[in-house]
Deep mutational scan, measured.
Amino acid sequence: IRCIGVSNRDFVEGMSGGTWVDVVLEHGGCVTVMAQDKPTVDIELVTTTVSNMAEVRSYCYEASISDMASDSRCPTQGEAYLDKQSDTQYVCKRTLVDRGWGNGCGLFGKGSLVTCAKFTCSKKMTGKSIQPENLEYRIMLSVHGSQHSGMIVNDTGYETDENRAKVEVTPNSPRAEATLGGFGSLGLDCEPRTGLDFSDLYYLTMNNKHWLVHKEWFHDIPLPWHAGADTGTPHWNNKEALVEFKDAHAKRQTVVVLGSQEGAVHTALAGALEAEMDGAKGKLFSGHLKCRLKMDKLRLKGVSYSLCTAAFTFTKVPAETLHGTVTVEVQYAGTDGPCKIPVQMAVDMQTLTPVGRLITANPVITESTENSKMMLELDPPFGDSYIVIGVGDKKITHHWHRSGSTIGKAFEATVRGAKRMAVLGDTAWDFGSVGGVFNSLGKGIHQIFGAAFKSLFGGMSWFSQILIGTLLVWLGLNTKNGSISLTCLALGGVMIFLSTAVSA
Rank of each mutant, 00 (worst) to 15 (best):
H148D: 11
I359A: 10
E191M: 11
V423Y: 06
L472S: 08
E367N: 01
G408I: 05
V343W: 10
A241Y: 07
L242G: 01
M68W: 12
E262S: 06
K123L: 00
L322D: 05
S146C: 15
I65R: 00
R193T: 15
T351E: 00
D189T: 05
R164F: 03
S173M: 10
A490K: 13
I4N: 13
G476A: 14
Y305H: 13
G17H: 04
R138D: 03
A346Q: 00
P192T: 14
I407Q: 04
T48F: 08
T360P: 07
E133L: 03
T360S: 13
R420V: 03
E216P: 04
G28I: 00
G195S: 15
G383N: 10
H235N: 15
S464T: 13
H27C: 03
T315I: 15
A241N: 10
I468N: 02
D37A: 15
L307G: 11
D230T: 10
F312D: 08
R73Y: 09
E370Y: 04
W474D: 10
D87P: 00
L201M: 12
L471H: 10
L135M: 15
S485A: 14
G492A: 15
L82I: 15
V494L: 15
L441I: 05
S306Y: 14
D200W: 05
W400K: 08
G232N: 14
G18P: 00
F457Q: 10
T126F: 02
L489A: 13
D336I: 11
Q447S: 13
Y202P: 02
K118F: 03
N238A: 03
W101Y: 06
L471D: 11
S149G: 12
D83V: 12
G259M: 09
K215R: 14
S485L: 02
S86G: 13
A270R: 11
E133V: 06
R252A: 02
G435M: 13
I152S: 15
M34W: 08
P39H: 03
W225H: 06
S58Y: 04
P338M: 11
R299I: 07
T335R: 10
K128G: 00
E370H: 12
E62G: 08
V41R: 00
V213M: 13
N371P: 01
G282T: 01
K409P: 00
M140H: 14
S403V: 11
W462P: 10
Y158M: 02
E320L: 02
W236K: 05
D10W: 08
Y90C: 13
P192W: 07
D278C: 01
Y61M: 12
S58P: 00
P338Y: 07
I152R: 06
Q89P: 01
G444K: 13
M345Q: 07
S16C: 03
T126I: 15
K38Q: 07
T19Y: 07
H214V: 04
C121E: 07
F11R: 01
E412G: 12
K290R: 15
A165C: 13
A428N: 03
K443V: 06
C60D: 07
L498H: 13
S461E: 01
A63L: 04
S440N: 07
M151K: 04
K281G: 02
T397S: 15
T40S: 10
S146F: 15
C116L: 02
L424P: 11
V328N: 06
G492E: 01
N103S: 14
C105W: 13
D426H: 15
C60L: 02
G111W: 01
P224S: 13
P380R: 00
T47W: 01
P354Q: 14
F218S: 07
M68P: 00
T233C: 02
D200P: 00
A35W: 10
H323S: 03
G181C: 04
M53S: 00
V265I: 15
K38S: 01
K340M: 11
A63G: 13
P381Q: 02
D296P: 01
A490Q: 10
D37P: 00
A361R: 00
G287Q: 01
L45D: 11
S306G: 15
T397Y: 06
L242Q: 05
K124H: 15
V317H: 01
H323C: 13
S260Y: 10
S149M: 14
E62L: 01
K128W: 11
F245S: 10
Q331H: 04
E55Y: 08
G469I: 09
E191D: 12
S72D: 07
E240M: 15
V328Y: 09
Y332K: 08
K373L: 14
E162M: 10
M345V: 15
G109P: 02
D430E: 08
S440L: 10
D87V: 05
C488Y: 13
G282H: 10
V12S: 02
E276L: 01
S173D: 07
S461Y: 11
I341D: 10
L472R: 00
E191L: 04
I387W: 07
H27A: 14
L300R: 01
T170R: 06
V56Q: 04
P75S: 12
E262Y: 09
T366K: 01
K124T: 11
Q36C: 11
S304R: 00
V473E: 02
V355E: 05
D393K: 00
T315Y: 14
K454P: 09
F497K: 11
M206S: 03
H399W: 15
G482P: 12
G78Q: 04
E168G: 04
L475M: 14
R402V: 01
C30A: 02
K209H: 05
T156S: 13
Y81I: 11
R99G: 10
H27Q: 07
M295G: 02
D10F: 02
N439Y: 15
G184S: 02
S7Y: 15
E136P: 00
G182H: 02
H219A: 12
I130A: 08
T427E: 02
D98Y: 02
A268L: 09
I448N: 10
E244D: 12
F382G: 01
N154A: 04
D200T: 00
V434Q: 12
Q447D: 03
R138V: 15
S483L: 05
Y61H: 11
P380I: 13
T254W: 06
K409S: 04
I1R: 00
M349L: 02
G259H: 10
S461W: 11
S129I: 07
T360I: 12
H401Q: 13
T366M: 14
K209N: 08
W474N: 04
A422W: 13
E62A: 13
N371M: 04
S503M: 14
F245W: 09
W462T: 13
A452Q: 12
L486K: 06
K316N: 01
E79I: 11
L284D: 03
S149E: 00
G228K: 08
T427W: 10
T500G: 00
M349D: 04
V6N: 02
V328W: 05
L135D: 03
D155C: 01
S503V: 03
G492P: 04
K209T: 09
G279F: 06
L467T: 10
L424Q: 10
L201T: 07
G29F: 13
D10C: 04
M277C: 03
M151H: 09
G404C: 04
V330M: 12
L486W: 13
E274Y: 07
G109L: 03
R94M: 09
I65P: 03
E412M: 12
L258Y: 09
A270Y: 14
V97M: 10
S173F: 05
Q77Y: 06
N207F: 02
L204N: 10
C60Q: 06
F497M: 12
T351G: 12
A80R: 05
R175C: 09
H401N: 01
I4M: 14
A451R: 03
I139A: 02
V343A: 15
V423I: 15
